[in-house]
Amino acid sequence: METSNQIDYQRIEKAIEYLKMNFKEQPSLEAIASHVHLSPFHFQRMFKEWAGVSPKQFVQYLSIEYAKGILKEQNGNLADVAYETGLSGTSRLHDLFIKIEGMTPGEYKNGGQQLLINYSYAESPFGSLLVASTSKGICYMAFSDDSDQAFAELQQLFPNANYQQLLDQLQQNALHIFSTDWSRLSEVKLHLKGTDFQIKVWETLLTVPSGGLATYADIANIIKKPTANRAVGTAVGSNLVAFLIPCHRVIKSTGELGQYHWGATKKTAMIGWEAARNTISK
């Protein structure tokens, strides 16, 4: 006999499939809810609990991903892209890109052509890293023993941006985090792109103190999405700013450390290093 959770999941799965097939029509909440035989109010609440975002936001993400594909593959003009995506016009496309991607459709289409990115290489207690910044803040920080590979991975994010190897003040403030009190994090400015849900997860990670640990379930509960453990895990894994956004402090509910973008060994070292520093400071 199926449990209520299984039935709810099947409804959400059916709704997601419906949205994937019909997002170009920008379906209303009432239409989606009717498809899975629920009231709009009940469906809205259930969808947010399971998916971590509202049905409207989910449609927006589908629309943006589709638009990004057209811009990359077909090099279409913005009016055509908006029409193909089911949006009312270029202004709606522009607003969605700014909200979700942190850039305009034109900037995305041009691969960051107008963007100036400073980058530099540095050493940390956990090995070599590359840190990059725009005029707004740190946009990338990654561990890598191969400087060429690290730069190539950065370029993949914004292939047409202008790059200069320069250690600026934003990067210096970020690198201080390895040698100073974590409370100075307020001096670090970040320039990130992500969905509302990802940003919310990353902001929550910043509240986990140095030397402390949290589970994926803890994070899901803090952001009031108790059933969104898997979505939280995906958001944690999408973080491209190593250490500053401390995804290394998130572990499984079983106590296992779990995976880490830059390797389980580094994650273990970071957790141990922070715990040791906290013990010394007490």
Results as ranks from 00 to 15, higher is better:
M103R: 11
T104D: 12
P105C: 12
P105F: 02
P105T: 13
G106N: 11
G106C: 13
E107F: 13
E107G: 05
K109M: 07
K109P: 01
N110G: 13
G111V: 15
Q113S: 14
Q114Y: 12
Q114E: 15
I117L: 10
Y119F: 05
S120C: 13
A122F: 05
A122Q: 11
P125W: 01
P125E: 02
F126G: 06
F126R: 04
G127Y: 02
G127K: 03
S128N: 09
L129Q: 02
L129H: 07
A132I: 02
A132K: 00
A132F: 01
A132D: 03
A132H: 02
T134A: 02
T134Q: 05
S135H: 07
K136L: 10
K136S: 06
K136I: 03
K136R: 07
G137Y: 04
I138M: 03
C139I: 08
Y140R: 00
Y140D: 00
M141H: 06
A142C: 04
F143H: 11
S144V: 00
S144N: 07
S144E: 09
D146N: 09
D148H: 09
A150G: 13
A150C: 12
F151I: 02
F151N: 02
A152W: 04
E153A: 04
E153L: 03
Q155T: 13
Q156C: 12
Q156R: 05
Q156W: 06
L157Q: 13
P159T: 15
N160Y: 04
N160H: 08
A161P: 05
N162W: 09
N162F: 02
Y163L: 08
Q164P: 01
L166A: 10
L166S: 06
D168L: 03
D168N: 08
D168R: 01
Q169L: 13
Q171I: 12
A174Y: 04
L175C: 00
L175W: 03
L175V: 09
I177K: 06
F178L: 03
S179H: 05
S179N: 11
D181Y: 05
D181H: 07
W182I: 14
W182R: 15
S183W: 12
R184M: 15
R184G: 11
L185M: 15
E187W: 02
E187S: 10
V188I: 15
L190H: 13
H191R: 01
L192W: 04
K193S: 08
K193V: 06
K193P: 01
G194L: 05
T195M: 08
T195K: 11
T195I: 03
F197S: 08
Q198H: 14
Q198G: 05
I199T: 11
K200R: 11
T204N: 01
T204S: 14
L205H: 12
L206K: 14
T207A: 10
V208I: 15
P209G: 10
P209I: 10
S210Y: 10
G211H: 12
G212N: 13
A214S: 13
A214Q: 07
A214T: 10
T215C: 05
Y216E: 00
A217T: 14
A217Y: 11
D218T: 13
I219S: 05
A220P: 00
A220N: 02
N221P: 05
N221Y: 06
I222W: 12
I223H: 03
P226D: 14
P226W: 08
T227P: 03
A228Y: 03
N229M: 08
R230F: 10
A231D: 11
A231K: 12
V232C: 00
V232I: 14
T234C: 06
V236Y: 01
